[in-house]
Amino acid sequence: MSIGARLIERYEAGSSVVHSTDGRLKLLLTVAYVFTVTLTPVGHWIAFGLLAAPLAVAVAASRLPVLLILRRSALALPFIVVAVPLLFTKEGDALFTLPPFGWTASEEGLLAVLTILTKSWLSVVAVILLTATTPAVELLRAMRALAVPRILVATVSFMYRYLFVIAEEAQRLLRARDCRSAELEDRKCGGGVRWRAGILGHMVGSLFVRSYERGERVYAAMQARGYDGEVRFLEDRPWRLAGIVVAIALALYLVGVEIYARY
């Protein structure tokens, strides 16, 4: 497996309870969890605590390295950038004023920012747990079983299939460039930043053209094997009672937390 493939692949092989749980249940629960977290009122920290608890248990049960989850959860960081303006735009009790601009931060604003951060972080961790304990193929199967539109499932499945191919192609282009990035003893090498940026831009462009052309070829190959716009799959596995019971219990818990937080 190349470096590119390892960067993209999210599944971490394991044999924990979380790993072996039905992918359909995991997908449903994750979506329900993200919805519940999103719907929780601003600043209701007890509710967020109650929501974090089952996630923490699930992470522990998955036996994934906590550091791995934390590292991947850095994905939630960009939300800070989006949320920070709220600190100044929301009306409320003044906290402090930023000297150069004269912007005033409000207490309500701070609460909103912290809530957004908590919500996005909890959601991201839940999804990380899902993707790290469920092979992509299983996730696709789950999406299909849960009646996600077939065209969407097909799109995701092609993306997953060819992302590796394209990542490797990109890697080979970069390698070819590096092989010819030579230095001579007595002069400044490497060209200007603009020139190098231009080269990289051309590489991205040629990668796009190649992916596009590959798409055409793949489509032709699919047509040759009778593709008519409908992707057909084999039947799914049966549901298991134990998994359903646990899933219903968790769903009820989520609903309970939400009711508690709102009323």
Partner: peptide, 29 residues
């Protein structure tokens, strides 16, 4: 001078000339 098996991996520039000139340009000639 290392040449890959698949020339599509080797050639990453929009035109033939750009590709052939890449090495010398990088050297700062």
């Amino acid at each position: 001078g290392l040449v890959f098996e698949n020339p599509d991996d080797q050639l990453f520039s929009p035109t033939v000339f750009d590709d052939v000139a890449f090495g010398p340009l990088y050297m700062g000639l």
